[in-house]
């Protein structure tokens, strides 16, 4: 004699603990290199690179402009400020504070980009 077959049981899940798509932190996508994470990363890199290239472009323009101005306007070569010829002041002194100001500005802007990015990807 055979035992009666066990009663059927319905297996279900309430799905209450499941993660809904909206509650993922984007930081996790970034971490797991999903397509969405890739979009976030590309955005950050593009913003940073644009800032960097702007600084470089400004530097190149300033560096090229100086000798061009000096050779197109020979009068600037003989101008003296406090007894020091202008070309020596420009190339020997003024370059350094200018580079420092530009560097400081860049560091601040770059950190701001990162702060904004952190806020975006860390909120659920």
């Amino acid at each position: 004699m055979t035992a009666p077959p066990p009663e059927r049981v319905r297996v279900t899940s309430s799905r209450r603990g499941a993660v809904t798509p909206g509650s993922r932190r984007p930081a996790r996508d970034l971490d797991e290199q999903t397509e969405l994470g890739d979009v976030y990363l590309a955005g950050l890199m593009r913003a940073q690179l644009r800032l960097s290239l702007a600084v470089l472009a400004l530097t190149v323009v300033a560096l090229v402009a100086l000798p061009v101005v000096l050779s197109l306007m020979p009068a600037t070569q003989s101008t003296t400020v406090l007894g020091i010829p202008f070309p020596w002041l420009a190339l020997g002194v003024a370059v350094y504070p200018a580079a420092w100001v530009l560097a400081r500005w860049y560091a601040g802007q770059s950190e701001r980009l990162e702060t904004d990015f952190t806020e975006v990807v860390e909120q659920p």
Partner: peptide
């Protein structure tokens, strides 16, 4: 490549468990 670039560019304050 993607994992390394995430590591290079993501600010430290973003918590990344793997990268």
């Amino acid at each position: 490549t993607a994992r390394v670039l995430v590591r290079l560019h993501t600010p430290e304050r973003v918590t990344l468990a793997r990268s």
